[in-house]
Design a protein around this nucleic acid. Structure first.
Length: 396
DNA sequence: CCTCCACTGGAAACCTAGGCTC
DNA sequence: GAGCCTAGGTTTCCAGTGGAGG
């Protein structure tokens, strides 16, 4: 074991540090210059610029697939807007509704950015949605705030019966003398269809589409980032090309491309390479996928883990009924509650979305209609990751 | 062309754990 | 403490269904 440790350190010593500024590749990093997005930037700047003479800018709606720069562009423009604001009345915040999780937590995050009096703070739970919205409006009005709200993945808010979005777009009077401008961001191009037309008309006053980056554009972006992040000469052009090609084949996702490059750099450094070669990119690509699966697996609730173990007993794939049978046995054995088949069917659908299981609906004619279920994780990984759970050791 | 299986997936209702207000 | 609220997971109920076998 000691040899292993020594070997790692020796390698680390040999390889010189390849990074000069790792943060230039971090997911939160927003460069001052976003190439190929000049027109979107100037568009947004023009709209939001109104706020500098104290009147309310139009609401904005930004569309485009993941990694097309929507979030970065919105945050960059808003950041510069705040820098230009001498009156210091402009307040901006960024909330991702999907990451926040629920409508209530989204509002909670929004409220965090606002000055709230001691007795008006928002608790993690307990208040009605309308009460929280009321407190947010009150704070904006009282302090005369010019509030620019960037709502990322806004699609997660449309299916609410509270009509929070509607209230937000119609805040007008209630927040005077302050105002509330919404910059909505959506990955889902069909999201408009689900939106209440009243909301759409005011939310979509200005609409902007972000097309995916081409492989060539990705290459140029990566080259620029690599120049800032790595020491000169450690990232050959072929590496950039491969990285761009890998990400480009996945619909021009710049975030993925940048992630890949960062991890490849870490791999190269750890293994004591003098440069980040194509091999490192390939390894990084595998690592990203492996991490995603293990993380998803680990954070699964107990019942979902038992279900996936049950499903893994059928390497060739099976159907819902079989999985349910196996599951209920396992659950009883580990003295967990036994859920209904309806719920198990639902959980299998969730696992499908996570990409841990393949659950396609198939019809077998006379023999009914069910999901064809196949676990997409090999049994060793499953045993290793889930085996850490005491109580589930008696599995495979 | 019709049947009928083994479910699917929508809807509503229920439950628990948290927190509010009075 | 009583009587409200919410989130989020679950159960209950059930109409709906693709297509192989008749």
């Amino acid at each position: 074991m000691d040899d292993g440790i020594d070997a790692i350190f020796t390698k680390a010593k040999q390889g010189r540090a390849l990074f000069q500024d790792r943060s230039a590749l971090s997911p939160e990093f927003i460069p001052d210059h976003l190439p190929f997005r000049e027109s979107q930037i100037s568009n947004i700047a023009q709209v939001l610029g109104t706020a500098l003479h104290g009147s309310k800018p139009s609401n904005l709606l930004l569309y485009g697939k993941t990694g097309t720069g929507k979030t970065a562009v919105a945050r960059l423009v808003v950041r510069k807007l705040q820098n230009q604001d001498d009156s210091k009345q402009i307040l901006a915040t960024y909330v991702n509704s999907r990451i926040a999780g629920t409508e209530y937590r989204t509002l909670f995050k929004i409220a965090e950015a606002l000055p709230l009096e001691e007795d008006k703070r928002i608790p993690l739970t307990g208040l009605s949605i309308s009460e929280v919205v009321g407190r947010i409006f009150e704070s904006i009005a009282k302090n005369g705030i010019h509030f620019v709200l960037i709502l990322d993945e806004i699609d997660y808010l449309v299916n609410s019966e509270h009509e929070t979005l509607y209230q937000f777009t119609r805040a007008g009077e209630q927040v005077a003398p302050g105002f509330l401008t919404i910059v909505g961001i959506s990955n889902d191009l069909r999201f408009k269809e689900a939106l209440d037309p009243r909301v759409l008309s005011s939310l979509g006053e200005e609409e902007l589409v972000f097309p995916p980056y081409t492989t060539e554009e990705l290459r140029s972006i990566l080259a620029e980032r690599a120049k800032a992040a790595f020491k000169p000469g450690v990232v050959p052009e072929s590496t950039i090309n491969l990285c761009a090609a890998l990400a480009g084949s996945e619909h021009g996702d710049a975030r993925r491309a940048v992630d890949l490059l960062r991890i490849a750099g870490e791999v190269a450094e750890r293994e004591g390479h003098q440069s980040v070669d194509e091999e490192c990119i390939r390894k990084a690509s595998q690592k990203v996928e492996r991490d995603r699966v293990e993380e998803a697996l680990q954070s699964l609730p107990l019942q979902n883990k038992i279900i996936i173990i049950a499903a893994s007993k059928f390497p060739g794939g099976t159907n819902t009924g079989e999985v349910y049978l196996a599951y209920s046995n396992l659950a009883r054995k580990s003295s967990a509650e036994v859920l209904t088949q309806r719920r198990v069917s639902g959980i299998l659908a969730e696992l499908d979305v996570l990409g841990l299981v393949e659950a396609a609906v198939v019809s077998k004619g006379r023999r009914g209609r069910t999901k064809r279920i196949k676990v997409l994780i090999d049994n060793e990984t499953l045993a290793r990751v889930i085996g850490e759970d005491a109580g589930l050791l008696d599995l495979a």
